[in-house]
């Protein structure tokens, strides 16, 4: 069975997708969502094979949401939209389909055929996320869980990030957030401008570095403006020095 999540803020639009999906014997609708945070939760909970994602939604746009997904484990994404052609056109080249409203059943079934074909090839999924990242402000904002809800924080408010088993701990001045992501993929999303990796399991916001003090064997101790002391391992030393112009 192919599992799917339907995301659209308009009930009639969801109903249309649901009706046609239910006619397919190999497809199982595991959840529906009416906004960006709801969609993120549904995708995290059900890990569906593919997502039908509206672009214009309250809270977070579909494009922004796609950019926040862990690229390695992302579902196949199909954008459903009324008038964001210019935004979704880029995806055509990247092996992700989109539906333009209103669409007919023939177009819908053709989309399903492509999804079935793509599910056999996992590489396409990370490409979709990568394209969404290049098309949205994904590097500026990060979707984080807070209690039961999800919301966006500015990436400039992040001080440092540490990897801890399967989780990431994202530290801001006020608190920290737990994210089920890999450090490598999160850094890819946030881009090289602001963050630099200083250890196998640590990355810092470059603007937050106050001082660097040499330790032994080429390691350094980084002190952040917030007072935090982190270790810069010599493997990542050169990359940091290159970036900070030392």
């Amino acid at each position: 069975m192919i599992t799917v999540v339907i995301v659209d803020d308009e009930a009639p639009a969801r109903a249309k997708l649901r009706r046609w999906l239910e006619e397919q014997s190999d497809i199982d609708i595991v959840a529906e969502a009416a906004d960006g945070p709801g969609a993120a939760r549904a995708i995290a909970t059900h890990a569906p094979d593919f997502v039908l994602l509206d672009i214009q939604m309250p809270g977070i746009s579909g494009l922004e949401l796609a950019a926040q997904l862990e690229s390695g484990a992302a579902p196949v994404i199909v954008f459903v939209t009324a008038f964001d052609e210019h935004a979704v056109r880029a995806f055509d080249l990247n092996a992700v389909d989109y539906l333009l409203k209103p669409y007919d059943q023939e177009r819908f079934l053709r989309m399903l055929e492509r999804v079935r074909a793509r599910l056999k090839n996992r590489e396409d999924r990370s490409r979709a996320v990568a394209t969404a990242r290049s098309r949205s402000t994904a590097s500026e904002r990060l979707l984080v869980p807070e209690g039961e809800s999800l919301h966006m924080i500015d990436s400039s408010s992040i001080l440092w990030i540490e990897a801890d088993d399967n989780y990431l701990r994202v530290h801001t001045a006020a608190r920290h957030y737990l994210l089920r992501r890999t450090l490598r993929d999160l850094l890819l999303q946030l881009g090289e401008q602001r963050f630099v990796q200083i250890h196998k399991s640590t990355a810092v916001n470059i603007a937050e570095i106050r001082s660097l003090d040499p330790l032994f064997k080429g390691d350094y101790e980084i002190q952040l403006r917030s007072g935090e002391r982190l270790r810069l391992s010599r493997r990542y030393r050169q990359a940091l020095f290159d970036r900070t112009g030392r």
Binding site: E10, P12, A13, A82, K101, P102, Y103
Partner: peptide, 8 residues
């Protein structure tokens, strides 16, 4: 377009 889709 959204209205057309609702009608559809």
């Amino acid at each position: 377009f959204n209205t057309l889709n609702t009608i559809s």
